[in-house]
Amino acid sequence: MANVETLTLDCRDKPTRDINNAIRKAADDGVKTVEILNTRARHNIGVGILKPIHLIYRGHVGYYTVGLCDGVTAEIHGSAGWGVGDNLLAGEVVVEGNAATSAGPSIRGGRIVVKGNGGPRCGVYLKSGDLIIGGDAGYMSGFMMQNGRLIICGDAAKGLGDSMYQGQIWLGGKVEEMGSGVAETEPEAGELDAVLEMLDGYKIKPPKAFRKLESDRSLWNFNKNDFAAWKDVL
């Protein structure tokens, strides 16, 4: 299959394991792009791909799309189910529609872009890399994030950034209720420009202004005088 630029893969009637093995083999053979048809919101399509390849999903996808991948780039022409880009090490996933619960969980690098809205727990345990939500983000987004950037152009539901350790949240809209241990901080020189430039690259309309949120580190060490705050967290 060498010299093949684009491989077309029809998911209809194919077991998930066969689809993922076909993508893995294409990556091994140096195929540049795999176009995936008839995804029909199926789960686990394009999981465990550890060599660079570009995936084009034509349609909605189910859970854990581009999960456990390294160096993979993907465009999803539809909406994504839970955990899109789970544990991505490097690469890029662009979701044209909405993403369900836990978009970009535990990613350690790379970038996940959701042009529509994100469900609850966007960027949960984010460890590095960027997660961009073009619309609104659901309940407890950025929960326990440890590093990286979570960029929300729209509004955020309750518990934004709850128990975050480090990293940055950039919020364009309103927040229903801030999570525990989060504080608004002053952006450093160039930080906001970098965020805006990134949004421009995906043709996402930026909000009028961004607020930068970070951990206030109050939950880093247990302090029995702050027991009420801890009780709230737990």
Partner: peptide
Amino acid sequence: DPQSLREGVLSDIEVWEPGA
């Protein structure tokens, strides 16, 4: 499950998820 819904109505219809 979105997959089951779409298989049910035999269309690649848009879905949304109720929030917390």
